[in-house]
């Protein structure tokens, strides 16, 4: 069985296991929906109080919010396996993956597909659809394709972050929570247009983690708004590729981590 089919098969197995605990899954999904819903309620309340955010409207922010939450939900749902790596290393269960004749990244990716992220996903979709409709930008095939391209780029980037976080576990399994700064912090950051942040902060989320490239710039092209920071339109359209590059880099790092693991044996 080739790698892609095996991945689908493994993820299918993970879903089947979760369906055995249906009640718990429904609860968690609803909880997730409420948590993200409440976050958006907060955004709405601030707009009700202040009218606008640095020249951006609620509908525009809703699109940013939607794109980042849809992408993060997809990456988070599919990349949960990488979340298990630190625990597996600590318990010695990672060895089992090395004992099977397949790439470790593939096997880890196949460990888990979390269904409960559907809460965040639907929340994001709702924000996205409402935002785009409120802005009245229309739903031509070009726009749908651009939207899909943005989601691919942003999902790859968030997936890459999870791979990086898991890779660090080959060096240390302590203080991994610090990486949440980049994952959950990145989600929080990208829910608002980048131009509202200070310059040093924008740089971190452009060059260290290409969040601006996968969420901010292409969304501008999507809602047809010129960049207050001056990025040209073609750059806005190409930018999601940075997410794929980031993921490729993360996987290269992962291979280095596995090599280190097999040579230190810790």
């Amino acid at each position: 069985m080739n790698d892609a089919r095996l991945l689908v098969r493994l993820l299918g197995v993970s879903m089947r296991s979760q369906l055995q605990y249906r009640a718990s899954m429904v609860m968690q999904s609803v909880g997730h929906l409420l948590v993200t819903g409440i976050e958006f309620l907060g955004v709405w309340a601030l707009f009700a109080r202040f009218g606008q955010l640095d020249g951006w409207t609620l509908a525009e922010v809703a699109v940013f919010y939607g794109v980042v939450n849809v992408s993060f939900a997809l990456a988070d749902a599919g990349g949960r396996g990488f979340d298990q790596v630190a625990a597996r290393i600590k318990q010695g269960d990672f060895d089992r993956l090395l004992l099977r004749p397949r790439s470790t990244a593939l096997q880890v990716a196949g460990l888990e597909l979390t269904l409960k992220r559907i809460g965040r996903l639907s929340q994001g979709l709702a924000g996205l659809i409402w935002g785009l409709s409120a802005l009245g930008v229309g739903w031509g095939p070009g726009r749908v394709a651009l939207l899909a391209w943005i989601v691919v780029g942003a999902t790859s980037m968030f997936y890459g972050l999870m791979v990086v976080q898991a890779t660090i576990a080959f060096w240390t399994t302590e203080s991994l929570e610090l990486m949440n700064v980049l994952t959950y912090g990145g989600v929080e950051t990208a829910q608002y247009p980048m131009s509202v942040y200070r310059r040093w902060f924008r740089r971190v989320f452009t060059y260290v983690v290409p969040l601006a490239c996968v969420c901010y710039l292409p969304v501008l092209a999507l809602i047809e708004r010129p960049d207050p920071l001056g990025a040209p339109l073609w750059a806005q359209r190409v930018a999601p590729a940075a997410g794929l590059v980031f993921l490729a880099g993360a996987l290269a790092l992962w291979r280095g981590g596995v090599r280190r693991y097999t040579s230190t044996g810790s």
């Binding site: 601030l46 109080r49 202040f50 009218g51 606008q52 955010l53 640095d54 929570e177 610090l178 949440n180 700064v181 959950y184 912090g185 929080e188 950051t189 608002y192 509202v196 942040y197 200070r198 902060f201």
Partner: peptide
Amino acid sequence: GTQAFWGMIRIMIFEAFYRS
């Protein structure tokens, strides 16, 4: 570390709202 970073993000967002 996470919370300090988080706090800064929140403050920047409020800062932008307060510019209105």
